[in-house]
Each structure stands twice: as C-alpha cells, then as structure tokens.
C-alpha cells in the first residue's frame, strides 16, 4: 500500500495580505504549511502505522508543487512521520488548480500509489478543487470531506463517512481512490486500520513532530521532479484579472433612541 499526501505552502494566514499591481503581493510573505494538510498527513499516518508499535502497513509519501528551494513545509511533514517526499519544482503562485491537479495525478501514476489523501482545501484561496480534479483525471473513485475512515484491508477498500446536513453519509470506496479530509478526521477514533489496538490514545489533533522525527527528517529522501519529467505542460487556464482589498468599513453611528434609529434607517440608510 502506498499513500500519497498532498501538502502545500501558503502565506501565513495570520498576517494581513498585502496588495500590489492588482494582485496579492506574496513577495515578503512568511510561508507556512497549510493546516488542512496536517489533517491529511495525520490520516495517512494513522492508516499506515500500527499504533503503539513500529510496524508500518503502508508507505506514506508527501507530494508538494512548489519551488524546489522553498520546501521547508515538506520537511515539517517528513518530521511528522512521512517516509519520503516528492517535490514538483514549479512556481505554485502561477498555477491554477487544474495544473496542480495534472501534476499530482502524474505523480500518482508514476508512483503507482493506492490512495491520495488531501486536506479538503488550502487556507489561502479555499478553492477546494484539487482532490476532485485529480480523481477526475485519474478516473478514480473519490470520497470528500471525510470525518472518519475505516480501512478494510481484506477487501482493499475504505469505508468513509462525512457529515452532511441531516446526518452522516457513509460510502464504501474501492482502492485505488482519492480521499479529502475534514477537521473531525483527527478525533481519536476517526481513523481505523484494523491493526492499531482499539483505544490507542491518539490525540484529538494532528501530532507534533518529535525531536527524533525532526532530526531524522533531513535523512529522508526527497525527489525533485520538473513538470516536464512528468510529461505535464503547465500553464494557468484560469487567469486572475485583479484582486483588491474589500472597501474599508465606515465608522458606525451611535444613536440615542429607537426613534432616532428608525428615523436614520428611513432617511439616511433608506432601507425602510
């Protein structure tokens, strides 16, 4: 079993965006890892490991599309426990979702992977497209926004549940497949592989990298591929015409009475 996990760097969402030339200016941004990718790697690791032991049921490979020199986020995921990494060397700020999906689909094929695990979205543009596009390109079954997953190893399939408005929707997905995960996937009993003992004390968050994991990360293999190596010609079909900050909110007015409020809504705001 080989699990591919998509990971992405994003401008630190805590810092307010800067605008230049009608676009978001990321030239001085602090880049951090996408938080949903931590949920994806945690899912993959819980599927792969036998909790409490050292045996692994699957290889976990992280893949990121980013400049080869800007891959600190990849090291973070290796430190968390991924076996190795693949970096597709491309300027991610210039690619649209379809291009990224083509590259990831090509890596999936090249690796002969059995499962792709992605966070449901990246926190920068929140487009929530890549995993679905990859499933389409590979013509594989997909399950999105997973809140829990059970790996039925004898049947080579996943049973995936997601929360919907009126309850929980459960799907059985044969492997190979594509999975995108939601926040609740990291609850202590959300991921089962039939090998980790029931009640294994998983935390309710993605794991922290241990110091040993951090020191081991630099010894793990990282393959760097160019889009051409994958036979993919990238180029954004979606063109961004301009991005502007929302207009500044006007200061409010404090009124002295309900009567004054109604009067202003009628005469100034003209909403009554």
């Amino acid at each position: 079993m080989k699990i591919l996990v998509t990971v992405k760097r994003i401008p630190d969402p805590v810092e307010p965006p800067k605008f230049a030339g009608g676009q978001i200016d990321t030239s001085s941004a602090k880049w951090v890892q996408n938080e949903f990718d931590e949920y994806a790697i945690e899912t993959a690791l819980r599927l792969a490991e036998v909790g409490g032991g050292t045996e692994r049921l699957a290889e976990v490979v992280v893949v990121s599309v980013c400049p080869a020199t800007k891959r600190e986020h990849v090291t973070n995921f290796l430190a968390m426990g991924a076996n190795r990494a693949i970096v597709v060397d491309a300027d991610d700020t210039q690619l649209d979702a379809q291009s990224v999906a083509q590259l990831i689909a090509a890596v999936f094929r090249k690796e002969g992977a059995d499962l792709l695990v992605s966070g449901k979205l990246s926190q920068d543009n929140e487009s929530n497209e890549v995993s679905q596009r990859v499933a389409g390109l590979l013509d594989l079954p997909q399950a999105t926004f997973a809140a829990s997953v059970v790996w039925d190893r004898s049947a080579n399939a996943l049973q995936v549940a997601r929360e919907v408005e009126d309850g929980v929707e459960t799907k059985r997905v044969p492997l190979p497949a594509v999975l995108s995960v939601d926040l609740r996937i990291v609850l202590p009993t959300s991921v089962k592989n039939g090998a980790t003992p029931e009640g294994h004390p998983y935390p309710d968050k993605p794991r922290l990298a241990s110091l040993r994991g951090i020191t081991m990360a630099k010894t793990k293999k990282v393959d760097v591929l160019k889009p051409a190596d994958l036979g993919v010609s990238v180029g954004a079909k979606v063109v961004s015409r301009g991005v502007v900050a929302p207009p500044k909110r006007q200061a409010g007015k404090i009124v002295a009475s309900v009567e004054e409020l109604v009067e202003k809504l009628a005469t100034e705001a003209k909403v009554l």
């Binding site: 600190e72 090291t75 430190a79 990298a209 241990s210 020191t215």
Partner: peptide, 8 residues
C-alpha cells in the same frame, strides 16, 4: 531543525 524544534 532548530526552527522545527521551536514550532513543536
């Protein structure tokens, strides 16, 4: 590595 230790 030092940066990752700090983050952890």
């Amino acid at each position: 590595e030092h940066d990752l230790v700090r983050q952890t």
